[in-house]
Simulated assay, not measured.
Amino acid sequence: MDLRIADLSVTLAGREIVRSLSLEVGSGTVVGLVGPNGSGKSTVLRTVYRALRPDAGTIRLDDTDLATLSRRDGARRIAAMPQDAGADLDFTVAELVALGRAPHLTGNRALGPEDREVCRRAMARLDVLDLADRGVLSLSGGERQRVVAARALAQDPELLVLDEPTNHLDVAHQLGLLAVLRDSGATVLVVLHDLNLAAAVCDRIGVLDEGRLVAAGTPADVLTEGLVAQVFGVDTRVVTHPETGAVQLLFTLPTSPPHRRGAS
């Protein structure tokens, strides 16, 4: 399913957070949003998974305006992983992942064998199958993050929307999660702070600054030394990964705290 965001604007507490943003995410591709803190990345995601209502603009899956979908239909088609998503109640891991199947159940139907197999595969792919009987609140931050990702995967959505899914994860599990996203078959919109991870996993990258989309394209087209200096206020050298050919950034340690334009 293609995701099309057109002329999106969002105002919160009297401040325009997202300004006339348009972005397309092709079916089955991974598109990353990057940008400084406060640039509007999470707000864009929250409008896509309908936690926020935009002031202007449209968001479509193929030809369907997301605003017209019922809650159940929306949950069947879109799975969201917000920042630091977790559980307030101490479900077991298996119970929390099984919540991903809820949009697909009608009436009081319990999980069937196929649903349980979907959950088992999701837990196995995120390396949490051995935690299935553990209480979620007993887990480390990284373990809990992988469980929430497994719940989103078990939802079997057309669109995966993830906000910093690699938070709390060690390097091996960061790479493992991103590999799962690439292989999921879903259309993926993901916010990442690590520009090198974004370059490695994303087909395209959108760069936000002060609520506007200032660049969009392949990692090689977008992650240039000039743009990174302009938007993030840091000096870099762009190199190519010797095996994959992916763009990689080498950062220069600043001699003083970064000072971005407009800062006081």
Rank of each mutant, 00 (worst) to 15 (best):
D194W: 10
D235W: 05
P103I: 00
L249G: 02
R151K: 13
G28L: 12
E117Y: 10
S9I: 10
L159V: 15
D163M: 05
E117K: 12
G262H: 08
V18I: 09
R146T: 01
L105A: 13
L208P: 04
A216C: 14
E117D: 15
R146I: 02
V161R: 07
L111Y: 09
D73C: 04
A150T: 06
V180F: 05
D2N: 15
G211D: 04
P219R: 01
A13Q: 14
G135Q: 08
C119Y: 01
V97N: 01
A172W: 04
R116G: 09
G226W: 00
A263R: 11
L126H: 00
E243K: 10
V238P: 00
P242N: 09
G26I: 00
Q83Y: 06
R19V: 12
L129S: 13
T252E: 12
I17A: 13
L181W: 04
P257R: 13
R212Q: 14
V34M: 05
S42R: 08
S184C: 10
S22L: 05
E95N: 09
V222W: 10
S20V: 04
E114M: 10
T166Y: 09
S184E: 04
T106I: 00
L137F: 03
D62C: 09
A198N: 07
V147W: 06
V118M: 10
A220I: 00
F232T: 02
R151I: 02
V239P: 01
C202S: 12
A263L: 11
A220S: 14
L137S: 10
V201Q: 08
P258D: 11
V147C: 03
N37C: 11
R120H: 14
P165E: 04
R260K: 12
R15A: 13
L195H: 04
P219I: 01
K41A: 04
P157E: 07
L169K: 08
A149G: 02
V207P: 02
F251V: 09
L253C: 07
E95V: 07
P219F: 00
G135C: 03
V18T: 02
L227E: 04
D63S: 15
A215K: 07
P103T: 08
V31S: 06
A263D: 15
V48L: 11
G142T: 10
V97E: 02
V207R: 02
G107M: 06
R125K: 13
A75G: 15
A246Y: 03
L227G: 05
V148H: 06
P113R: 12
V93Q: 05
L105Q: 15
P113C: 00
A94L: 13
L105H: 06
I59D: 06
L131F: 04
R116Y: 06
A122T: 05
R77H: 09
V247P: 03
D62E: 14
L153G: 07
L197N: 03
S27E: 13
K41C: 00
V171C: 05
R212Y: 04
D62S: 12
N167C: 10
D88V: 14
V207E: 03
L99Q: 13
D133E: 15
